[in-house]
Design a protein around this nucleic acid. Structure first.
Lengths: 213, 213
DNA sequence: GAATGTGAATTTATTCACAGCA
DNA sequence: TGCTGTGAATAAATTCACATTC
């Protein structure tokens, strides 16, 4: 193990780890106990050396001549991704997208716990979203400190996204998943990842247009 | 203009074009008529040469010593992305995510027209989603041919995603935006882009974990 | 003088190919 | 023998730096 600190892990490796993890869990569910980089590579249409190299940034997880233990690999990758703890998540913006996310069960299973939901509008504050009630954004600061919120999913309208993210950053929320189609600059150091559906559609449009001439 | 056919445009350039387009529309809305690659680069925190090189795969859109006309650039990039036409889109899966997407106005403005929405479940078929009614997936094939559907957004449960995407591909839908957390292999040649929220959260987790040690 | 467009240089990512070990 | 782990080779993407044009 040379590279145990994550300093020089290529940016492209990180989302791939999530991909490997998903496929490995699928294999485990099917009762598979052992897998080679070659097999895994075939399943997700990738180069086998790529997979081995990605692992090599973190340690040696396999056995030469044999392959990888599925459960072992799941544990190792989970650890690499910081998933052997749970993270507290809030949703800011209780519109359609926000409530859709709130009701999705999948995140909790991965260790992302939805602890609160916030909105600016009086008409939705107090409404139930399954396991809780929508709170006023005025309560955000106190709530985030008290509940040790790690991640915010921002599903407010585009016009409010910048101010919302600045606010969250100032409050001390260190990571944001932003669904508004705006790239936000922040003075404070905060991780922002963008979920940009228009941009995805445009990429499809580009390749469709190329195909059709 | 050397590279008018899109054959050798780097994959990473395409989503950046969408990003430029958004910022340029924002500038236009503010009444800005001219912009330099340096200014644009500062706004989106990118290298200016990167922007110029991205454009250079398609042609020469600027004026030396002067810069770029905002409207001209919007038109050129729209053309590059295949956005000077409209695309017909369906949503398959009328759950929370599907209906949230259906009600979002933003796509229509970009030339992506929602023409239909489908589900397997009898309990939601016939329900209204704003501009139409949910149809049975049994009608998919006929509908897609009649309405010349270009793109499907797939928001069915993970367990049904693979079969749904195979079906859409067989029917002749050439591009899919998949919200289910499964990477799908298809025999037929179809463009699939993945919107993977768990994976995004895991990436945030990775970097958060690194910060906190 | 100012900013584009682009070869060349650099950096980053992927793939090859093989030594090392079960 | 079979598959990992990894330096070396290759490919891709980014950035530099400057000739070119307004």
């Amino acid at each position: 193990m040379r590279n145990v600190d994550k300093k020089d892990v290529p940016a492209v490796t990180v989302p791939r780890l999530a991909l490997y993890l998903r496929k490995l869990r699928e294999l485990r569910a099917r009762g598979v106990e052992r897998v080679s980089s070659k097999d895994l590579a075939a399943m997700i249409e990738l180069n086998a050396a790529q997979i081995r190299k990605d692992f090599s940034y973190f340690g040696e997880f396999g056995t030469r001549g044999v392959g990888y233990g599925v459960q072992r690999l799941i544990d190792e990758i989970s650890h690499c991704l910081g998933l052997d703890r749970s993270w507290n998540v809030v949703i800011v913006g209780a519109g359609l997208m926000g409530t859709a996310l709130a009701r999705y069960r999948g995140f909790g299973e991965q260790g992302f716990h939805l602890v609160g939901m916030f909105d600016r509008s009086e008409t939705v504050i107090g409404a139930s979203y399954g396991a809780g009630r929508v709170r006023s954004v005025a309560e955000l600061e106190e709530f985030c400190r008290a509940e040790k919120v790690d991640i915010a999913m921002v599903t407010v309208p585009a016009t409010e996204a910048e101010a919302t993210i600045q606010h969250l950053a100032a409050i001390g929320v260190r990571a944001i998943l932003n669904f508004a189609p705006v790239k936000v600059r922040t003075d404070v150091d905060v991780l922002v990842r963008q979920v940009d559906l228009s941009s995805e559609l445009m990429s499809l449009s580009f390749y469709l247009d190329r195909e059709q001439g």
